[in-house]
Design a protein around this nucleic acid. Structure first.
Ligand SMILES: [Mn+2]
Ligand SMILES: [Mn+2]
Ligand SMILES: [Mn+2]
Ligand SMILES: [Mn+2]
Lengths: 163, 163
DNA sequence: AATAATTGTTAGCCAAGGCTAAACTGTTTG
DNA sequence: CAAACAGTTTAGCCTTGGCTAACAATTATT
């Protein structure tokens, strides 16, 4: 079933420069790449919400829907709907018209996310990326960085902190 | 309108360690972070499709829907629908039941995406990340890396290539 | 050439994550 | 204390990106 690997006659050409690229990875590996990204996308937004809620509580004493909407650049209706979802997922508790609290599990996720986010951000800065750009890039990259890479980033930060 | 910055009475606590984190960025900047990520997510999948189609043509001589579905780990129906969209966007041309071709614009996008993907991949490897992990991380990270960061990554690669 | 297998398309379903408009609640203030 | 205002929720709409099942076209086998 379509492990179709016989290169066609017109597969040649393209010897112009050394630009043959990296050759396609084996199908199974390739599929796992895309799958991993799809999985990350399912949890991304949730992580950002939970992380933001944690940050608001930490820095401002409470997390209100309006502040979340404001920070995320999204309508309050969108936030309200999302909060219901976070509730169903057991990540936050909320009474109607009151501010939010993270559950145990929510706090755990918030901390993990924040730690990861910080490592990516500090890594980019250590690399020499401008702070504003680093913040923007980190916001997206954080969800696609494996533990292995994270460890290496941390090491890099440490090595560039001394002097 | 909710530039609400008066810290509440209970905002104190949390002097346990030096763990106060990085202080929230100004609202405008924070909003731009999330917006940038949302925008990236709109084009991500399209870029991956176009890039893959380009790679298939380059390495195998043609891009068939079945191969795309196979590589992406997704149903043929999903691919078929996506191809219609790519068509409407003017990125590919296709006759029913035949293999795909990239338009001028599609080729341009494919090349940009591939270049970016390669830089991120090579950067991760240069950093010391295991090849398999690097491939997985790169597949997601590539869509969230600014030109500025990309340039710095390229410099890093070059510096670590010589010896 | 007829049949079988593979490949591609279509229809219809679903969840996520946006939006606006309208209703409702809570708080501030005249 | 009654309005007015600010914050929250709900209802209903839309697009994206998955899926399965049924059907259609092409290609391969006998
Ligand atoms: Mn984050
Ligand atoms: Mn993020
Ligand atoms: Mn890619
Ligand atoms: Mn990708």
């Amino acid at each position: 079933m379509s492990d179709n690997d016989q290169s066609l006659p017109n597969a040649a050409a393209s010897m112009s420069n050394s630009n043959c690229g990296d050759a396609l990875p084996p199908v199974g590996q390739h599929t796992r790449q895309y799958e991993t990204v799809r999985n990350a996308h399912e949890t991304e937004l949730i992580e950002d919400y939970v992380e933001l809620i944690g940050d608001l509580i930490r820095h401002r004493g409470e997390a209100r829907a309006a502040d979340i909407a404001n920070r995320m650049g999204v309508s309050q209706a969108t936030v309200s709907k999302m909060i219901r979802r976070l509730n169903e997922l057991g990540l936050v508790t909320s009474k109607p018209y009151r501010s939010l609290f993270l559950t145990e599990e929510g706090q755990k996720m918030a901390e993990i996310s924040r730690t990861r986010h910080d490592i990516v951000l500090h890594f980019l800065r250590a690399l020499g990326v401008n702070d504003n750009t680093a913040r923007i890039d980190a916001e997206g990259m954080e969800h696609h960085v494996s533990d292995e890479t994270l460890t290496i980033m941390q090491r890099f930060i440490d090595q560039h902190a001394k002097r």
